[in-house]
């Protein structure tokens, strides 16, 4: 079984987190220590400073760490801060970036088709997954977006301390390309019914490091009583498949 973390971060935040990894080497060491072979990574500069700065930084800093896989942050294409949509896609192809993050709160834009439609129309047929953090009433934004963004492969990383099943289960039921990261699925007994109703292929192991303890996130999946094939898929197989299916 190969662990492939869909949500890990390296770099210093403006307000330091107690267990953050200030350097990429520190993150690589940490993942190695707890037995996580690969990780899809972000850098705080992507949402604290500017995607143009943070995206470049991710590429630059992970180049000697093949186990770390880059993700980039998006912005509304209208302002062309990341170039045109074609420019952005060409750069993704150059640097083998196969997953994106949206930070609409930090970057102050509306996550809807009017705003990011021109970008989504390009990434949807390419099967590029888009990651987003969401909780509570902000699920309404996701409901609204998915009504229009047919086929969008959206990975939701819930940040709620309380279980959000009543928010996300209707989306899993209606939209087959919606997936969940496991990093904050804390409710006891939460994983097996999700697998039963929607399939193991809808879940990706994630640590949400450094907001969550990365080692602890292994336990609920390892010992939840699911068949080994499901655990293996969630631990890393699903993410590998997702990235393999991307066309750049």
């Amino acid at each position: 079984m190969q662990w492939f973390d869909c949500h890990a971060e390296f770099g210093r935040r403006a307000i330091p987190n107690a267990i953050q990894c200030p350097t990429v080497s520190a993150l690589a060491d940490l993942l190695g220590e707890i037995g996580v072979e690969r990780a899809l990574v972000t850098h705080p500069a992507q949402y604290e400073q500017h995607p143009a700065v943070g995206n470049a930084r991710v590429i630059e800093e992970i180049c000697d760490y093949p186990q770390l896989v880059p993700t980039w942050a998006i912005l509304p294409p209208q302002t062309e801060e990341l170039g045109t949509v074609d420019d952005f896609l060409a750069a993704m192809a150059t640097f083998e970036v196969r997953a994106l993050w949206a930070y609409p709160v930090q970057h102050r834009y509306l996550l809807n088709m009017t705003t990011i439609g021109p970008l989504l129309e390009t990434i949807i047929p390419r099967r590029i997954p888009l990651f987003i953090k969401v909780e509570g009433e902000r699920w309404q934004t996701i409901y609204d977006l998915l009504k229009d963004a047919t086929g969008l492969r959206l990975v939701c990383v819930t940040t709620a301390l309380w279980g959000d099943d009543r928010f996300f289960r209707p989306l899993l039921e209606r939209y087959p390309d919606v997936l969940l990261a496991t990093s904050t699925l804390f409710v006891e007994g939460q994983l097996p019914p999700l697998v039963k109703h929607y399939g193991a292929h809808r879940l990706l192991y994630g640590s949400s490091f450094p907001d969550r303890q990365p080692g602890a996130s292994l336990f609920p999946l390892l010992h939840c009583g699911l068949p080994e094939a499901d655990i293996t898929a969630i631990a890393g197989g699903n993410l590998q498949r997702l990235l393999r299916e991307v066309t750049l």
Binding site: W162, Q213, A216
Partner: peptide
Amino acid sequence: GTDLPWFNPHYTLGCVLFA
């Protein structure tokens, strides 16, 4: 403590183990 069933005991156990 875990607030069970609010929080998965294995996750909270993991927080102690990996501290």
